[in-house]
């Protein structure tokens, strides 16, 4: 495959710190190989900035193979950029054409405050998980793994939800910065499994409330989340969670506390 060289104009959100004012700054990216990944393109731009004595563009990244969920970036208004089912680190420059202008912004949401440039703080997701995104299974107390058969369709359904990498693209894409897809994926991954049933009601109430407390918006069923999710998690998990939340709320109101 022949490597093309691309000349691009980048419009990048620069913000020196969490408290500073940010702005879009324009950079010219010259001679970018089409075989480079998007993050490698930024590496090249940064190398030039460093050589010029400027501060490089700060962005989160780690595994660079689409699984850790660390990379973010809203590219031309779309979290993780063009292409379905990929993270920013899996996006390659052959998706762009010579002369393109590319807007690069952080994942924007009040619940994801910007720390610097394109880096945001997604610890709200951790707090949501801490509010119930687990099955209490004391180490060493487990029964034999095959003691409880789980039908394959149920296991598959749980797996599809468990594929979430916690990147936050769903929030970034949602017109209301809602975290429903993230929360629903975890609620349903654990809730559908027999071992997760004991804490099901407590989990959904706790996690939804933690989500609300963190300042995420509300779901208006527009499915932008599903469209940009790099793991293509279905918004029907949200449907199911809505139902589970309603049932748990009624139980909590009229039967017992969780």
């Amino acid at each position: 495959m022949a490597t093309e060289k691309l000349n691009l104009t980048l419009k990048v959100w620069r913000q020196p710190s969490s408290t500073a004012q940010g702005e879009i700054v324009t950079y010219e990216a010259k001679d970018i190989p089409s075989t480079a990944s998007f993050l490698e393109m930024l590496d090249i731009v940064n190398e030039e900035l460093i050589n010029k004595g400027d501060e490089p563009i700060a962005f989160d990244h780690d595994c660079r193979e689409g699984i850790c969920g660390m990379c973010s970036l809203t590219i031309n208004g779309r979290p993780h950029g063009p292409g379905d089912g990929v993270t920013t680190c899996q996006l390659h420059m052959r998706s762009f054409r010579n002369g393109d202008t590319i807007w690069i912004e952080p994942f924007r949401a009040q619940a994801f405050p910007i720390l610097k440039d394109l880096i945001v703080d997604r610890s709200a997701f951790d707090h949501i998980i801490q509010a119930g995104g687990y099955i209490s299974a004391r180490t060493g107390s487990a029964v034999d793994a095959n003691a409880m058969p789980i039908p394959k369709p149920v296991a598959d359904y749980a797996f599809d939800a468990a594929a979430c990498i916690g990147c936050g693209a769903c929030v970034a894409a949602c017109k209301n910065a809602s975290a429903m897809l993230f929360v629903a994926a975890k609620v349903e991954h654990l809730g559908v499994l027999p071992q997760g049933k004991a804490e099901k009601d407590r989990r959904v109430l706790g996690m939804v409330r933690a989500m609300d407390d963190a300042g995420f918006g509300n779901c208006t069923n527009q499915y932008e989340c599903e469209a940009v999710c790099p793991k293509e998690i279905s918004a029907t998990y949200i449907t199911k969670m809505n139902r589970d939340f309603a049932a748990a709320s009624i139980k909590e109101a009229v039967v017992n506390e969780f």
């Binding site: 687990y134 107390s141 487990a142 029964v143 793994a145 058969p149 039908p151 394959k152 071992q195």
Partner: peptide
């Protein structure tokens, strides 16, 4: 062997056969 038990108890969705076993 204990690791697998522990992980299944935590809800790790390991691949399963149609009969429901791992």
């Amino acid at each position: 062997t204990q690791i697998i038990d522990q992980c299944v108890a935590q809800g790790v969705p390991f691949a399963r056969e149609y009969g429901g076993l791992l």
